[in-house]
Each structure stands twice: as structure tokens, then as C-alpha cells.
């Protein structure tokens, strides 16, 4: 999987704009966003509700097309890519972690992890999936279904699933939003470990300063505009900047 991983800048956005609503009454979701994300880093996109965080994620992942601007993912322009190309890029280069886990209820933890590889038609050794399960600390839970796991455990399965195809970029949309404090710490530690050990670029979308604090850098998004980039900021400072800009 390592040979497919792109080097240095994984994601680059230039003047990305995205409009919502019907023609004539559009509202801007993103306005001229420029940013880049490097491999082996953990970035947080922070901002109040309605600031455009999820829209940014959707555009960056090729799930929504921007109105203007360019998006480069692992060296490939995706803003005008075909549906087939986008599917391939998502499958090969991008992993997703959601707030509500989005595990397939009918599959076991191990089967959930293995699912992206199966969809891609790749023959990944089952040991690889088992190893990932061990990596997220769930070696004894391979045959459990999501309903039999706690929220934190489900999110760890979701992270393992996002990593199984060896992506260059991992998007995490409010990954700790549905978890308690202890589970949140475990998940953040896991994301940091993934970033460090695998060299994956992790982009966490959150409005929680505690989550943002654990990132290498924090991008503050307000009303669809990237207003500030913080590095090494404390949770109080992030909270203050976010509120002040809102």
C-alpha cells in the first residue's frame, strides 16, 4: 500500500468556492478557501456550526464539486474528475471516520475493517485486518457486531477500517462528537499514533477546542472563509479565537 501513498503535500485547495441554494438565491458555503495538508501531519479544521467545515471536507474528498477553484488530491485534480475517477481516488487514497461511526450493522468488526478492500477488489491478507484491529486495541473483539461494542470501540473499528486500504489522507468528521471524555482521549491518541506511525495526513473537522488542541495545526473557518491558522495553540486560545471570529 505504501507505494500508492503520495509524498509531501497530500491535499491542496486553491480559491475553492461552494454555493448553496437555488439559482438566484445562493448562499456561500465556502469562499475562496486556500489550504494545503502535508503527509504525516494532523490538522484540525475548527469553527462554529454553519461555518462550512463539513462542506470543506465534502469538497476536499470529492463528494461535492466546488463552484470554482481547484482541488488537488495526491497530485490529481479532482474538481472536474469523473464519478468513476473520484470513486477510485476515494477508494485508494482517502479514509473516512464519522461522528456516528457508520459501521455496517450486519458485519462483524473484522468484516467491517475488511470491507473497503473487498469493495476495491483487493486481496488483502486477513492478518493485515487483524493487525489493524490489534493496533486500535480491539484484538478480542473481531467477531463482535457493532451493536455489541461501545461507542469508543465502534469508533476505533471505524478508524481501523479507514486505514485498511493504506490511504494518504484520512478525514475525520467530529470523530469524538458522540463519545465520552475517556473514549475521546483514546481516539485522539489513536489518530496521533496513526499520523506518526503511518505517515498519513489526518484532517479532523471539529468544533471542539479540546480535539483541535491535539492537532499539529488548526485552521479556523468562519462563514466559509479560512480566517486563521494556529500552530501549537492551547484549547482556550482556540476557543477564544473561534468565538471571537464568529
Amino acid at each position: 500500500m505504501g507505494d500508492r501513498r503520495c509524498s509531501s503535500v497530500v491535499l491542496r485547495l486553491r480559491d475553492v468556492c461552494r454555493l448553496y441554494g437555488r439559482p438566484g438565491g445562493e448562499q456561500s458555503g465556502l469562499r475562496g478557501v486556500c489550504a494545503q495538508f502535508e503527509a504525516g501531519t494532523l490538522a484540525a479544521v475548527c469553527g462554529p456550526s454553519g461555518s462550512g467545515k463539513s462542506t470543506l471536507l465534502m469538497c476536499a474528498a470529492g463528494l461535492t464539486r466546488p463552484a470554482s477553484g481547484t482541488i488537488e488530491l495526491c497530485g490529481e485534480r479532482i474538481e472536474a474528475a469523473s464519478e468513476r475517477q473520484l470513486t477510485r481516488i476515494r477508494r485508494d487514497q482517502v479514509g473516512f471516520v464519522f461522528q456516528n461511526f457508520q459501521l455496517i450493522e450486519s458485519l462483524t468488526a473484522l468484516e467491517n475493517i475488511y470491507l473497503p478492500a473487498r469493495l476495491a477488489g483487493r486481496r488483502i491478507p486477513v492478518e493485515h485486518a487483524v493487525r489493524l484491529l490489534e493496533q486500535v486495541g480491539l484484538s478480542g473483539r473481531a467477531e463482535h457486531r457493532p451493536a455489541e461494542l461501545s461507542g469508543g470501540e465502534q469508533q476505533r473499528v471505524a478508524i481501523a477500517r479507514a486505514l485498511v486500504a493504506g490511504p494518504s489522507l484520512l478525514f475525520a468528521d467530529e470523530p469524538t462528537g458522540a463519545l465520552d471524555g475517556a473514549s475521546r482521549e483514546q481516539i485522539l491518541a489513536l489518530l496521533r499514533e496513526v499520523t506518526r506511525a503511518s505517515g498519513v495526513c489526518v484532517v479532523v473537522v471539529t468544533h471542539d477546542p479540546v480535539v483541535a488542541e491535539s492537532a499539529d495545526r488548526v485552521l479556523v473557518l468562519v462563514d466559509g472563509v479560512l480566517v486563521e491558522e494556529l500552530t501549537g495553540a492551547s484549547r482556550d486560545e482556540i476557543a477564544r479565537r473561534t468565538v471571537a471570529r464568529a
Binding site: A61, L63, E83, R84, T87, R88, R90, R91, D92, V94, F96, F98, Q102, I104, E105, L115, P116, L119, A120, R161, A165
Partner: peptide
């Protein structure tokens, strides 16, 4: 619908 969307996120084709 939720499961189908997840599959598309995970790289499943239409």
C-alpha cells in the same frame, strides 16, 4: 440510505 452512503464513502462504486 445511510448504509449505501457509507459504502460510497468507503470507495464502493455505484
Amino acid at each position: 440510505s445511510s448504509e449505501r452512503r457509507t459504502l460510497r464513502f468507503l470507495g464502493g462504486t455505484r
